[in-house]
Design a protein around this nucleic acid. Structure first.
Lengths: 208, 208
DNA sequence: AAGATTACGATACGCTACGTTTCGATATTA
DNA sequence: TAATATCGAAACGTAGCGTATCGTAATCTT
């Protein structure tokens, strides 16, 4: 029930595992066509105006084929975007944790102004209406990135660049929370200088 | 076109301005019944399962009556919630800005764990799909609260409790952004101690 | 080679909700 | 009283949902 999306994602990643089941196999090209059509249509008409029938027409497949592979609209979109999102923004390694974080925030902010920003906010928004979607988004987007940032911070603590009393988990939120907030609320622009001054503000007073 | 919601909101606030137009006047009780039914139904079935026809039935009015007053679902919900949300969380005034902020964050976090949290996240989520909704949310929820917080911070700067180089705008984001982020992403709980340690983390190193 | 099994696209289905229109009745102003 | 605007009820055409059925195509098993 609560693992429907995960099941489908696994299923689609099982291509290497050739169990040689009887019957006609699913066409992998069709799979890609559907995901591509989904990505295109979301950018053209937005998530709420996106329809399964529209995807089917654009992809040149039957509606049945889509329902055979995904349970609902949300999971198709999720699947379509995670194939696109997967390559994580890697952290720089300047030897100085503060500088690493500053640069990463700057790069992240810059990317959020592009199509990535639309995708993230759309996935987060739909997470509010669909717990399944929210869970998948946390597991596949939020968590791996938080883990990476936390490791960088941990390294900074071990090197004595950040005070050892600081909770890495909290610091990650303090650094990235405001960025996500501006992305979603849109009350102020996501500029490179925002990333700079935010890093400075948050990191001041955290010396080891 | 882009002022539809605002128009309707004005319209509904014009009750004091008695222009004495001809014809049967709109029943104000009906108005309240519709908004009440909307609030109840959103809590019961969620925003996406909310239907105009459901609201009409619950409120005991015709569908026509609703469409005569609001252009779409989003604007009804917006209207219904802003009537409920209006009483802003007032800031404490302990004489110490740091303490004021800490207490306010704590109170805010506590409230977000209740129905307020559902409403905020729902409104923010729908703002991603509906720019009109986003604008109204910023104007009627985000902005007044940011203004209030910024004033408190400004006072702290003038009193010498916060360094004068600090951008109040940025500090507001640094304090409240992470809270909204946890609310929306749900990767970590919104606990009172989170508010405490977040305040401490952000405010450290900002002394006048 | 034959048969079983599964996916495919096309089509049709019942359903729900949309937003609009029409209607007779009702309340208010001039 | 006449004009005007709102009211609830009902019916409308439209769109998209998710499902079921169909004949065809591809692949595995025997």
């Amino acid at each position: 029930m609560s693992s429907r999306i995960s099941d489908r994602l696994e299923e689609s990643l099982d291509e290497g595992c050739e169990a040689k089941q009887p019957g006609r196999p699913r066409c992998p090209v069709t799979h890609q066509n559907i995901l591509k059509a989904t990505r295109e249509l979301v950018e053209e008409v937005g998530y709420d105006s996106l329809t399964i029938e529209g995807i089917a027409t654009r992809a040149g497949v039957g509606k049945t084929t889509i329902y055979r592979r995904w349970p609902n609209k949300a999971s198709i979109v999720l699947n379509a975007f995670f194939e696109d999102l997967s390559p994580a923004t890697t952290f720089p390694d300047t030897g100085n944790v503060r500088e690493d974080l500053r640069r990463h925030l700057k790069k992240f902010v810059k990317e959020l102004n592009g199509p990535l920003g639309c995708k993230i906010s759309m996935l987060l928004a739909n997470g509010q209406l669909d717990e399944e979607m929210a869970e998948a988004f946390r597991a596949q987007w939020i968590k791996p990135r938080r883990d990476e940032a936390r490791q960088v911070i941990q390294k900074g603590i071990e090197r004595g660049e950040i005070h050892q009393d600081i909770d890495p988990e909290l610091l990650v939120d303090a650094l990235y929370g405001p960025i996500y907030f501006r992305l979603l609320a849109g009350h102020a622009p996501l500029t490179p200088s925002f990333a700079d001054s935010l890093t400075e503000l948050v990191m001041s007073g955290l010396d080891g």
